[in-house]
């Protein structure tokens, strides 16, 4: 039986993620669909940036692909800007939008 001989390398979680998905923080971080970023790549980026497991990252990736966008997290302005910057570093099509009541 083949076994892994390399260290288990998972995306590093370098950011505080406790507040990810907490409601009513005012700003929505949204990833928009495009026909160029590869599905596996988008999944990987979500894992790295948000520290999500593969299942959750893939769920959001499929939302982007099938529905045109995915709401990734609600944050205050500063944190939302941080996440948008991190996603754009990977050339994903991400923006922040004010949450409307």
């Amino acid at each position: 039986m083949a076994t892994r001989t390399c260290p288990e390398v998972l995306p590093e979680v370098t950011h505080a993620t406790d507040s990810v998905s907490e409601p009513d923080s005012g700003y929505l971080v949204i990833c928009w669909d495009d026909p160029v970023n590869l599905m596996d790549y988008v999944t990987h980026v979500f894992q790295v940036v948000f520290g999500w497991d593969k299942k959750k990252a893939k769920k959001h990736m499929l939302e982007v692909h099938n529905e045109g966008k995915s709401l990734l997290t609600r944050e205050n302005l500063e944190k939302a800007e941080f996440y948008v910057h991190e996603l754009q570093k990977y050339t994903l099509n991400a923006t922040l939008e004010r949450e409307t009541p």
């Binding site: 390398v9 590093e12 495009d34 026909p35 160029v36 970023n37 790549y41 990987h44 790295v48 570093k89 990977y90 050339t91």
Partner: peptide, 28 residues
């Protein structure tokens, strides 16, 4: 190192997306 591969991914994807933009950002 893992960090090398991580930024290589960013760089190579920039070239991929930039090439797509240079084609006029074609749709699906």
């Amino acid at each position: 190192g893992r960090g090398d591969l991580e930024w290589l991914l960013q760089v190579v994807n920039d070239v991929r997306v930039g090439s797509w933009i240079a084609q006029g950002s074609p749709g699906y």
